[in-house]
Amino acid sequence: MPMVEVAGKSFEVDEEGYLTNLADWTREIGEYLAKDEKVELTDSHWEVINFLREYYEEYQIAPAVRVLTKAVAKKLGPDKGNNKYLYELFPYGPAKQACKIAGLPKPTGCI
């Protein structure tokens, strides 16, 4: 398994760059993974990332993008829970890219 090094410690990722152990995740690792994805993290990004981590904690899965959008709309309002807003933050797919930065596995139900 490939490893990444952040702040002097190394962490295991899978062949697509997703963190292997959810518990390893720190904000610094999030920042490292974002840089790798060429995403510059703003408070709006963190809001979605934190939302995803809470979703995972509650349901033990990373949501499919359709489900994520709906859940974000419910929690943060319809101005954020829509494809346009989320794709602007995470151009390569809010579920896949944001999940990766949040240290979650690849979304379930994402074909």
């Binding site: 499919a64 993008v65 359709r66 797919g93 809010p94 579920a95 896949k96 690849k106 994402c110 074909i111």
Partner: peptide, 10 residues
């Protein structure tokens, strides 16, 4: 694996 399929609602 892309997010595309998820958008094919309706």
């Amino acid at each position: 694996m892309s997010d595309m399929m998820d958008d094919m609602e309706g």
